[in-house]
Design a protein around this nucleic acid. Sequence first.
DNA 1: CTGAAAGCGCTTACAG
DNA 2: CTGAAAGCGCTTACAG
Lengths: 351, 351
Amino acid sequence: MSKAVTILDIAREAGVSPATVSRVLNDSAPVAEATRKRVLAAAEAHHYAPNPFARGLVSNLSRTLGVLIPDITNPYFSLLFREVETAARQAGYSVLLYNSSFSAADASDLTEQELEGFRRMLEQRVDGVLVIGGQADLLHVTEAYREGLSRLAAQVPVVVLGDPIREVPCRFIQRERGHGVLLALQHLTSLGHRRIAFVGGEAEVGITEARLAAYVDGLSLLGLPLDRSLISLSDYYAPAGYRAMKALLASRAPFTAFLAMNDHVALGAIRALADAGLRVPEDVSCVSCDRFLTADYCIPRLTSVDQHNERFGRALVEALLEEIQGKPTGAPRLVSPELILRESCQPVASP
Amino acid sequence: MSKAVTILDIAREAGVSPATVSRVLNDSAPVAEATRKRVLAAAEAHHYAPNPFARGLVSNLSRTLGVLIPDITNPYFSLLFREVETAARQAGYSVLLYNSSFSAADASDLTEQELEGFRRMLEQRVDGVLVIGGQADLLHVTEAYREGLSRLAAQVPVVVLGDPIREVPCRFIQRERGHGVLLALQHLTSLGHRRIAFVGGEAEVGITEARLAAYVDGLSLLGLPLDRSLISLSDYYAPAGYRAMKALLASRAPFTAFLAMNDHVALGAIRALADAGLRVPEDVSCVSCDRFLTADYCIPRLTSVDQHNERFGRALVEALLEEIQGKPTGAPRLVSPELILRESCQPVASP
DNA sequence: CTGAAAGCGCTTACAG
DNA sequence: CTGAAAGCGCTTACAG
């Protein structure tokens, strides 16, 4: 590999001191226009890029943001991440991604992975950290996690997508998560459905609790009875949706429609219905949340609440930049959920 | 933010010189066991993490790998990336991800995004770069891209997933991409299909050309005639699959089965068939490539060739580490494609 | 086995 | 507006 060109090379070429080159490149002090031009020309000619190590050593800044995510192959996270990366880049930051492969199934084992992520961020001296998913999504975190996150936040600005964790000095940002469920319930009841199941999600996870609460409140708001046997939890992927629907069918609790935690769960659930000889929407209607990429091409096309989660990515980055730059804290812009009507709902069959 | 602890703090605490601390921490020279223990204890006690800027300034190493990817929300890339990140981490490297949002549709405009990615990698002084997708997937790249990639490779080890580009000093790694198509064709012909369409993919893209070539060769191998009107290209997402199938149907060329470039394309194509009143597999059989996450839950479940692309991620990282460490070049381990039989194929209806 | 010292490539007071 | 010099926190010959 060829040796990189340094500020000294540019200084020599432009006939000035390295200090002046630095001033021109960082626009950190007035420099005579003629000098300035010579410096810029020299830098350009040699494709000069300041050494970030040297720069970091004095500024203590890496121009890098760390992002902790459990699983980038989950479209919920990858959509969010893409937005985060774009926003970060536009603000002049690179993004270090750490995939902690966290799944609520075995929290104790995997806490270590998240702690390792925290450590990495510290080692790499990122300028700020975004924590998305993992234990931050849970109602209760382990003590080790609390400590690790606190230590991290003591040394670098941290923004967490989630509800505040007691005594942890991060900035927490949470979205409104119940309104979409209400939209879905209203839609289903307007079609005459009265026995509406809730499928997917895990207990102990914030989003599940929030949506479940909205489900319970929504039913009462709409004057429908709550039947706990219509709630079938699992997790957030297609196999889980399949299992949850199987369990629901096995319970023989009657229902004419269901709410799915997301499109993958919906897919699995619809598959389970099909395997039981039930069609969507002819026999059962379905509204899903968190619309993913291919929902418009499934059979049936999924009616889904689009939470516009990905737009939230930019808000997260902006909050983090505020923390880094110590600027005033604007409240994150809210993005309203939107019910996308497709084919998976139909008026309830008259009994 | 609290001021970080430095090697001097540890040296003082352990009653040794900073040089000795460095030796212990890097295991770079013999140190008396007693001294060693004191140093380690002090480092531990203060959660000491060496400053990567200072370290990088002398070593010129960042312990960071750069990964250039067009779109992390595409499951093909996110599956690959997850494996890359895991392998990199296990080798002690962090990963900087740059999303270039490249789509072959408007190459000229987007070359700039990829060049910007190259520049970023250089600025950040990553220890090595992995180039995945984008123009690297194309049969022909722009001159600007060639120059940018060459300049990058002149300064840092670069591994490209793709076919060699003339005069560019990178290591290129390519997979075998035709065998899966042959498996699919054999399966379909064994079911009696003789008019098999090819749906999805773009001309000018390597993988499309490779699979198309395998399709042409496979047909002749199996003694079937080639009918160009059964080839309907588009790109790699569900909407494209939909359009491609619509076009194929509009052409009225008869076929009883089709090969899809990937599961998203298959989904779109099957949707288009459904909208035309045709069922899979009853009316038309389908084999897809590049199995994605939810293929087992679609209606119908997709029969698909699993290329095990994600396993390739580790091979890429290993190749890059070899380039970085200047070690001998092992040929990348090959991963054979595997035909996953599900529900989307059925014997051809007797005419 | 251990320490003193130079040096990596920048930025930033301090002079002028 | 510009330069000389110190210093950021490490690592690595060089001595001993």
